[in-house]
């Protein structure tokens, strides 16, 4: 059986009662090439040192790319730094501290970097012996960065039904771009989907629901399902 959305999609605005956007939503995607920096850390002192000097695209890579590469994981380790300090260095308490950094509240990479440095520095100060712990050869933390390409897809949505249909088929990279990266790109606490829905349809409540999602605690496929479900629920109320 076709979903509510796909049935609606086959009708025109008048019949469906769906408002058409003046400015269609153009789906973009962001694809990454991982670049090695040649920098590595074998203990917390070296990790801190490099954290201060690596480019923002490296902080981005280790806090954001991890989710994309391991988005199926359950339970889900939140980022490379947390994974390494917990599983490789064996500093579980620090790993927990890094895991619990609320990435969603940071709208700039600069702030996120500062917070990471603060959490690790505090831990090292309180646990000076932790600096003496080195990992084995080959288990160092290797700093990488993302070289990112943002490119438009061929998909446009002019109403919420089309929006859902496209959302069902686009890559998680595209969802990631519009949900996670919007915060960093726009430097405000919203995402592209919410911004469009608010601007084009004046659907403040729906926009807020999407904007309030904490994307960092869902896998990307879950996030796709949740967004679709929220918008479908709204359409059924029409």
């Amino acid at each position: 059986m076709a979903s509510d959305a796909s049935l609606l999609n086959k009708t025109d605005e008048k019949e469906s009662g769906l408002k058409k956007a003046k400015l269609p939503f153009h789906f973009y995607t962001r694809l990454h090439l991982t670049v090695l920096t040649g920098l590595k850390a074998a203990n917390l002192t070296e990790l801190l040192e490099h954290l201060k000097e690596v480019p923002g695209s490296s902080i981005y890579h280790h806090t954001h790319r991890f989710l994309q590469q391991h988005q199926y994981l359950n339970p889900e380790p939140p980022n490379d730094f947390a994974y390494w300090t917990t599983e490789v260095l064996g500093e579980k308490k620090l790993g927990e501290g890094i895991s619990s950094i609320d990435v969603v509240q940071f709208s700039t990479i600069r702030d996120l970097r500062n917070r990471l440095i603060e959490v690790i520095s505090n831990y090292v100060q309180q646990n000076p012996l932790s600096q003496k712990k080195f990992v084995n050869d080959g288990e160092e933390f290797y700093f990488m960065k993302s070289l990112s390409f943002i490119l438009p897809t061929h998909d446009f949505a002019t109403d919420l039904a089309e929006f859902i249909e496209i959302l069902k088929k686009i890559t998680v990279d595209s969802i990631y771009f519009h949900v996670f990266e919007a915060r960093l790109r726009l430097e405000k606490k919203t995402n592209d989907f919410s911004a469009w829905i608010e601007q084009e349809f004046g659907e403040t409540d729906l926009a807020r629901k999407l904007s309030n999602l904490d994307p960092y605690t869902h896998t990307l496929e879950d996030l796709r399902r949740i967004i679709i479900s929220i918008v479908e629920k709204r359409l059924r109320r029409k």
């Binding site: 090439l33 991982t34 090695l36 920096t37 040649g38 990488m144």
Partner: peptide, 13 residues
């Protein structure tokens, strides 16, 4: 990553 070296050119993984 462990194969990378300090090089003046871009190193992709």
């Amino acid at each position: 990553p462990s194969f990378s070296q300090q090089l003046p050119i871009r190193q992709a993984l």
